[in-house]
């Protein structure tokens, strides 16, 4: 008999690993990726491949240079690359996407200590950096099925358009048949992915529901039109942001109460930027701003310990 292993209890564990969680997020994003391919063509896959590949490579190099344990096997870099790609217009030059990956993995994630330690969402931050660095390329929207046309047709993202909305337009938005980043247009695909993650208990719906809910209500009161309020939540990156970025573990609060505060904050900031800002889209900024507030939200939304005396010892 070999020497017995002696270790503290518990001696049993469940089999949910970090990589299992990440794999589930990847699975949940596949519908959105497929929708992107349908609407924007196979270049979507090329762009996604470049983002994922460069993210994993940057992660590998970073860990190597920092003489830390290699963490690419936890698949978190793959998730970052995938989410980043879904946040980019399909026409973006590939070298810009690589810069985005660099920002996400090297600057936002690894410089702060790697997985779980970053305070800002890597993909969101990378998108914002690209947005302010290459505004033209980052807003070069093309119409769905552009690849079938003889010449690429430029098209505005629905949020830039003004004018009336109607039910038919909202259905198009729900299905993703409109201009925008390659993974953000199809609300249906994102909803399927988000619900899958919720069903697998990977994410809590607290943040997405409060995010989308408050944005809907604010728009409803502001415009007094259900169609317009629906248009506000279906257009732009709301679903992608709410289900996949406002639920990021590292950069959002842990407790349910905290998640609700986070979601409400995102919804309110998105609404304010869209209505009163000079900028058509506010989802990325709202999530980044709330990321920054997360440590404070956490302090204020701690769980109540069962039977604990109120912090009298302070």
């Amino acid at each position: 008999m070999e020497k017995l292993i002696v270790s503290p209890s518990p001696h049993d564990e469940n089999y949910m690993k970090t990589s299992t969680i990440m794999l589930n997020v990847i699975i949940a994003l596949i519908p959105a990726l497929i929708a992107g391919c349908i609407y924007f063509g196979l270049r979507s896959l090329v762009l996604t491949g470049v983002c994922i590949g460069s993210c994993v490579l940057f992660e590998y190099i970073c860990r190597k240079m920092m003489k830390r344990e290699n963490t690419i096997a936890d698949l978190s870099a793959v998730v970052t690359g995938l989410i980043l790609a879904l946040n980019l217009p399909v026409t973006l030059p590939l070298w810009m996407a690589v810069i985005g990956s660099f920002v996400a993995i090297v600057i936002v994630k690894q410089l702060f200590g790697g997985i779980g330690q970053n305070f800002a969402n890597p993909a969101i931050t990378a998108r914002i950096v690209l947005m302010v660095s290459f505004p033209a390329a980052m807003t070069n929207w093309v119409a769905p099925y552009w690849y079938k046309a003889a010449d690429a047709v430029s098209c505005a993202t629905p949020l830039v358009l003004t004018g009336t909305t109607d039910e038919a337009r909202n259905i198009d938005l729900f299905l993703g048949n409109c201009g925008g980043c390659l993974g953000e247009t199809c609300a249906l695909a994102l909803l399927i992915g988000g619900l899958y993650l919720a069903a697998r208990k990977i994410i809590s719906l607290a943040a997405p529901v409060s995010f989308i809910g408050i944005l809907f209500l604010l728009s409803l009161f502001y415009y007094d039109s259900v169609d317009y309020a629906l248009y506000q939540i279906l257009a732009g990156g709301v679903f992608l942001g709410a289900f996949f970025m406002a639920t990021d573990y590292a950069t959002t609060p842990i407790t349910t109460k905290g998640k609700i505060v986070f979601g409400l904050g995102c919804g309110i900031i998105t609404f304010i930027i869209r209505q009163f800002g000079s900028y058509p889209e506010g989802v990325s900024y709202s999530i980044l701003l709330m990321n920054v507030l997360t440590p404070y939200i956490e302090q204020l939304t701690r769980t109540k310990v069962f039977g604990a005396k109120e912090a009298a010892e302070k």
């Binding site: 292993i5 779980g116 573990y249 590292a250 769980t303 069962f306």
Partner: peptide
Amino acid sequence: YDERKTSSCIRCGRCVNVCPLGLMPA
């Protein structure tokens, strides 16, 4: 008995959600 390696906390909050006393192990 395969002891898995310990890696960084990803702040998933599972420990908080299961603690019967509502402690925050993370």
